[in-house]
Every structure is written in C-alpha cells, then in structure tokens.
C-alpha cells in the first residue's frame, strides 16, 4: 500500500490561492484505503480550504471530483473532465497519480495536496507503518520476513549496530530496532544460524540508484 498524508493546509492554500476555480480530485486507490485522499477526505479538504482565514483575498471556488485510480492514464482520460473554467487541479493522489494527471492535461496546472510517504501496512486502527523500500532485490527470505532495508534507519544488511538498546533504534525511543525484530523472529523460527551469514554488498542499481524503474513489455518513454 502506498501511504500519503495531507500537506499542511496553509501550504495547500498558498499553492492554489492564485486560481479562481480549483478541482479537488480524490483518488479511489491506496490513499482512499489509508483514509487520506479518498472522496470523503476530498470533501473535507474542500470545506477546510474554502475558509477565508487561509487567504489574503477571496478563496478559490473548489469543486470535488474523484478518479478510481489516478495512476492509470486510461482512467484519467476516460473518467475525468475538468470542470468548466477551472484554473488548476489539486490532486489528492500519491506522486504517481499527480504525474499521470499532469501528463494527461498539459495545459492545466496540477498541484499535489499530499506528501507521498512510504509503502506500508496497516498495523493497528488507523496506523500505517513503513515496511517496504522497493529496493528491487528482496532479502526478506533471509531476514525472517522483516526488512532491514526499509526498517533499519541505517539500512544495515549486517546489523544490528551498536545503538540498538532494549529493542529500540538509536534514532528514537518509539522506533523498533529492525535487527532486534529479525533476531527474535529467527529465534522463534529456530533459524538463528541464519544470522551468522554475512550479507554481501547490495546491488543498488535495481533500486533508485539505477534511475527510474519500469515493469512491462513496453519500453518506457522517459
């Protein structure tokens, strides 16, 4: 699941203040599931952003629309028509959705309302936590199903570092030490000997270091 959270309202208001009319466009995908960018959230954002306290002059006129999946060009083109006279689109999707919208409407400014944060899972009511970094070369089979790349603050493949204390990461008291979790999990699996394995250096060329990545038979155009 891609998790995204709303930007500060003043920042959003500042970015749309120059337009008379703005379409607030919700996304029915991941951000809808993590309760930050779906239709209901878009209605709430419209109400909040219409308040004059955020503006020097008159607030823009906001209209809410929704696209099932903003990251798919076909959905965007087939099911979304900007409202007449709209000056800009305020997207509540993740960064992929914002860019898909921008590509589909090259004469219309598309502005993000969200900060896209991580790939995560639902750990408790309303609590999403980062689980995957999308590194392109999964090591979970060797680390007891707990990812050191996404969950260790130093991305150590041979952890834990000397800062692990009582199960917590040196970065902050609330953060669990991923390597502590890995060791506990290996113990309960009866596979602590897996810890003795030295991980070789990682190939980051399949991570972001290699440039933008793609999947599929067609060659990407970028």
């Amino acid at each position: 699941m891609i998790v995204a959270e709303l930007k500060p309202l003043q920042e959003i208001a500042d970015s749309v203040a120059q337009y008379g009319k703005v379409d607030v466009v919700a996304c029915g995908g991941c951000v809808s599931v993590c309760l930050t960018g779906g239709l209901k959230s878009a209605e709430e954002l419209r109400r909040e952003l219409s308040h004059p306290k955020y503006y020097m002059g008159r607030p823009p006129l906001f209209q809410v629309q929704s696209i099932q999946r903003q990251c798919e060009k076909d959905f965007v083109r087939s099911y979304f028509t900007p409202s007449p006279g709209t000056g800009a689109v305020l997207s509540m999707a993740c960064g992929a959705g914002v860019q898909t919208l921008a590509e589909a409407f090259n004469k219309l400014p598309v502005i993000p309302a969200m900060n896209t944060t991580f790939l995560g899972s639902l750990d408790g009511p309303g609590l999403w936590t980062e689980k995957c970094h999308g590194c392109g070369n999964c090591v979970l089979g060797l680390t007891g199903g707990i990812c050191p790349v996404a969950r260790c603050a130093k991305r150590l493949l041979n952890g834990p570092c000397g800062g692990s204390s009582e199960g917590k990461c040196e970065v902050g008291g609330h953060l669990n030490c991923a390597w502590h979790l890995i060791i506990e999990r290996l113990k309960s699996l009866g596979r602590l000997e897996d810890y003795d394995r030295l991980f070789p250096v990682k190939d980051w060329s399949v991570d972001k270091a290699g440039g933008p990545r793609s999947l599929g038979r067609l060659r990407p155009s970028y």
Binding site: N158, C161, G162, S164, S165, G167, I183, E184, L192, D196
Partner: peptide, 19 residues
C-alpha cells in the same frame, strides 16, 4: 572494526564479532 558488547540483543554480540 568496532564492537559494542553492551548493545542489544546481548546474545548475538559474540556472534556479531564472529561475523
């Protein structure tokens, strides 16, 4: 290299040195 015998989990600290 460094070793921190006082970090947790203590039980793997010697194993970590071995690595």
């Amino acid at each position: 290299a460094a070793a921190n015998p006082f970090a947790d989990p203590f039980e793997i600290r010697a194993a970590r040195l071995a690595k």
